[in-house]
């Protein structure tokens, strides 16, 4: 634990400003509010949440595509927020990305060779022959062949395109790859091929991943740690197994309970238990207090006014929920998980 994380995000906020008619600043939209995250070298952090939760904003801020409005992002010895999206070459070549849609993430007018070697052209002095050699090497890393070099993206299937995108991201031997929904546009049978490939490459090359996804089960598979976002806030963070099996925050629980199961019997049982729960206010926006208070079945008076701070969770990690506060010990959410751990 004494090793400094590779990426450390502290109290990060991202705000988008709407534009009024005359091009002046309009209403602000707080996409991320006070987020804390850390990724160690070679580790995978899964960032999950529903659409609009701010997970892509965090990814884009780390990538320098969107400026942070406050807070800090430390990467190695560099302060990324201070660079204001203009990263110098030694930072750029260490942070790469793979995006969701393989149909628009590859330039249709470039060949595979052009796409895969583009990072080398920007950041290295390699000549054409050296670049080509590296490109062949990279294609082999993602199970494609040399003959694919001269083809254009439209000649490949979605899974193959995503392999090309991964090859390009690996070209500079980065320390961190941001994976923004890397498989959600792919077919079920292809998804796992790509996940396995990412996993293999991570172990072989010691790369850290920041994995953005909405599928908790999938994130659980390949992440070491999971962070859960709701309305711009990170509400829970911790080791993957702990978050997946013993969620501490009511929102994480709701998210997990909503994932359909492959077992019709368990599905049926869950449906029955859902019927017993009271209907909740569907109003989602919360300006003061806990962001989840309006949908939370366990909301307390305190949640209406105060923003819950980070409380440590048994089994590792933190969650922003007053149920974990020491004073309500005795009837809080993590108790069952403690009982479970008694052999």
């Amino acid at each position: 634990m004494t090793v400094r994380p590779l990426l450390e995000i502290t109290d990060l906020s991202v705000t988008y400003w709407g534009r009024s008619l005359l091009g002046l600043r309009g209403k602000p939209f707080f996409a991320v509010k006070g987020a804390n995250l850390a990724i160690r070298a070679g580790e995978t952090l899964g960032l999950v949440g529903e659409s609009g939760s701010g997970k892509s904003s965090i990814a884009n801020t780390v990538l320098g595509l969107v400026p942070a409005s406050s807070g800090s992002i430390r990467f190695g010895d560099h302060d990324l927020v201070a660079m204001k999206t203009r990263y110098p070459s030694e930072v750029r070549n260490q942070i790469q990305a793979v995006f969701q849609d393989p149909y628009s993430s590859l330039n249709p007018s470039m060949t595979v060779e052009g796409i895969v070697t583009e990072p080398l052209r920007v950041h290295t002095n390699m000549n054409k022959a050296e670049r080509r050699e590296r490109a062949i090497e990279l294609l082999k890393l993602v199970s494609l062949q040399e003959e694919h070099l001269s083809r254009h993206p439209h000649q490949f299937s979605g899974g193959q395109r995503q392999r090309i995108a991964i090859a390009s991201a690996l070209a500079l031997r980065p320390k961190l790859i941001v994976l923004d929904e890397p498989v959600s546009a792919l077919d079920v049978s292809t998804q796992n091929q790509i996940i396995n490939l990412l996993y293999e490459r991570r172990d072989a090359l010691g790369i850290a991943y920041l994995l953005i996804a909405h599928d908790l089960a999938l994130v659980h598979h390949i992440s070491d740690r999971i962070a859960v976002m709701y309305l711009g806030h990170i509400v829970e963070e911790g080791p993957s197994d702990r978050v997946y099996k013993n969620p501490a925050h009511p929102y994480t629980k709701a998210l997990l309970d909503a994932v359909p199961l492959l077992d019709p019997d368990r599905q049926r049982a869950r449906r029955e238990s859902r019927k017993l729960q009271p209907a909740l206010d569907t109003q989602r926006v919360a300006d003061v207090g806990c962001p989840y208070k309006n949908r939370c079945p366990m909301a307390m008076p305190r949640c209406q006014t105060d923003m819950p701070p980070e409380y440590p969770v048994a089994g590792g990690g933190v969650a922003n929920c007053f149920l974990l506060a020491p004073e309500v010990e005795g009837h809080h959410a993590t108790k069952p998980s403690r009982e479970k751990r008694i052999p």
Partner: peptide, 19 residues
């Protein structure tokens, strides 16, 4: 191949090739 089915131990089961 559905992620729900398997445990947290890659490699995940796959169907080789494409549709």
């Amino acid at each position: 191949a559905m992620p729900h089915a398997s445990d947290r131990n890659p490699p995940l089961p796959t169907i080789r090739g494409n549709v």
